[in-house]
Amino acid sequence: MSSATITTAKPFGALAEFGNPAELYHACEKVRDEGFSVWDAHTPFPVHGLEDAMGAPRSKVPWISLVFALFGGTIPAFALQSWVAVEGSRQVISGKPMLSWQAFIPVTFEVSVLLGAVGALLGMLMINRLPQLYHSLFRSERFERFSDDKFFISIESRDPKFDAEGTVAFLQSLGSSHVELVED
């Protein structure tokens, strides 16, 4: 039932389709053990534990978010408020000391959260190199169903272990229902 269509001399890579998360999971384990490095899984939702099966590293987004929050939010926000209170617009308000740090906590907190959130989203997009509206995989008609109910593994031709026929055969041996080469 497996079929392979070889269309071009210099493909983007090989794309294999799987029917459910379990098949994908076990296939990923084998791709990982085979020593491929430039490859990926494509799923409609995050499949739990797949990063272990793929041997993918943990995300670095938290650190980006923390740096944004601290150095973009907490410190500047507190500094600005203190400066405004002591220098910028020096006024006695409700008999409080000029540098009444207590009153600056709410805004400092809010701005830190804002920057942390922006950092998380931007960090995620940056690491993922998104937005990238065009991608070679979108050439594949079957690939459209990654966002519905199909599960895919793509191995790119940049991978040193990639060779068109061998990789297709390897993916077929993993139980994929359909393997194809995608044009670059």
Binding site: D40, T43, S65, A120, N128, L130, L133, F152
Partner: peptide, 23 residues
């Protein structure tokens, strides 16, 4: 944004989602 369900993307995505929830 050209989302292609990549699991390497999902890892960062879930991390960002968790941080957004935590914040």
């Amino acid at each position: 944004l050209g989302w292609r369900g990549s699991h390497r993307h999902w890892i960062n995505y879930e991390s960002a989602y968790g941080i957004l929830a935590g914040l």
